[in-house]
């Protein structure tokens, strides 16, 4: 787990993008958290089960375990006396649903079904030519290899109907998308979809624009 910024300030808990997209957007996310810290907003980047420094094997991770871990991280912020809110990237928007949060901020959020379609496409690119319907077949059977990572069949099944918390436009959920993305959003910012890039470079201009948007939203909704 990484902590950023002051101890006694409104605190965002970061829900990173899932799987390979999480690797590709980690530098961007850490950059945004540093920039929020510089604006007096604290940040927490938890190592969710099966990710980062977590000791849980990747094949044991499930959506439910991620959600429970995210809720526990949120609970610690509330117990420390600070106002908690979440900042999610892409599939990370699926992870904060159990947490007690007055305000959620999401960059290009995804439905679980879309996460699954991307995993399947990655598997196809790596040579998988089986029937995707067979992947859900047995709840806790052998893990599914996705381009070198093992994911559990339960996680695969959970993604079929996992959704982010519903959106209402302002405080409870604020959705930000990149300029080329036509789907519903509360704001659109110029920038590169770093989650697509195999050689992810930084994007300080986007990170700054994201930090400004989040800081303004925290001031209105969760300070």
């Amino acid at each position: 787990m990484l902590r950023f910024g002051p101890d006694d300030a409104p605190t965002v808990i970061a829900a990173p993008a899932l799987f390979e997209e999480g690797n590709r957007t980690r530098a961007l996310l850490v950059d945004v958290l540093h920039r929020l810290a510089a604006r007096g907003i604290a940040g927490v980047l938890p190592d969710l089960p099966g990710t980062g420094e977590s000791l849980v094997p990747t094949a044991r991770a499930t959506v439910l375990r991620w959600r429970e871990a995210f809720e526990a991280a949120t609970e610690r912020v509330w117990r420390s006396g600070q106002v908690a809110s979440s900042v999610a990237i892409r599939g990370g928007a699926l992870l904060d649903t159990l947490a007690l949060l007055p305000a959620r901020w999401q960059l290009a959020p995804m439905r679980g079904e879309e996460v699954r379609a991307e995993l399947l496409r990655t598997m196809r690119a790596a040579g998988f030519d089986g029937d995707p319907a067979a992947l859900s077949a047995d709840g806790d059977g052998t893990p599914i290899p996705v381009a070198g990572n093992l994911i559990s069949r339960r996680l695969w099944s959970e993604l079929a109907d996992a959704l982010p918390v519903g959106q209402d436009g302002e405080c409870s959920v604020r959705i930000v998308r990149l300029a080329g993305d036509p789907r519903t959003a509360d704001a659109r910012l110029d920038g590169t979809p770093m989650w697509r890039r195999a050689e992810a470079t930084g994007d300080p201009i986007l990170a700054e624009a994201l930090a400004v948007d989040i800081a303004g939203w925290i001031a209105r909704c969760a300070a």
Binding site: T122, A125, A198
Partner: peptide, 8 residues
């Protein structure tokens, strides 16, 4: 792999 990203 990049093809998958381009299509998505």
């Amino acid at each position: 792999m990049a093809v998958a990203g381009v299509l998505t």
